[in-house]
């Protein structure tokens, strides 16, 4: 193994069932249902997935959902806005903890 991440491995995702089929089947059935048209459109779900892929920094997911959002008719501007949503939440999640820091400062300061 030369690298931990190989783009070709994405195509092998379905093969995880070779070692534990019942759980894999349940996961892929669930996965398929999650991304089907529902109260949210498949397009909206794809953009959410793209944003989450960046939040969790999963190269496979970024590869898959960049293609998928394009195939759902999204353009680059919409895709980048979705990534900014992920970045804003991640950044905000750090910054909001500053309130704890401020609480502590107050607690121990004269």
């Amino acid at each position: 193994m030369k690298t931990y991440y190989n783009p070709e491995d994405l195509k092998k995702f379905g093969k995880i069932g070779e070692l534990q089929k019942p759980l894999a089947d349940k996961f892929f059935d669930y996965y398929g249902e999650v991304f089907a048209e529902g109260a949210l459109t498949a397009r909206e779900k794809s953009l959410i997935a793209l944003a989450v892929a960046h939040a969790i920094q999963c190269p496979y997911c970024i590869d898959a959902y960049t293609t998928d959002t394009l195939e759902k008719g999204c353009d680059e501007e919409q895709m980048m806005e979705a990534v900014h949503v992920a970045a804003a939440i991640r950044g905000g999640a750090s910054l909001v903890h500053a309130t704890q820091m401020m609480n502590k400062i107050n607690e121990i300061s004269m």
């Binding site: 397009r43 394009l70 008719g73």
Partner: peptide
């Protein structure tokens, strides 16, 4: 499509 990917669902687009 403007690249190496398939078109979206026609009706939604």
């Amino acid at each position: 499509p403007s690249g190496a990917f398939l078109p979206p669902a026609q009706e939604a687009l």
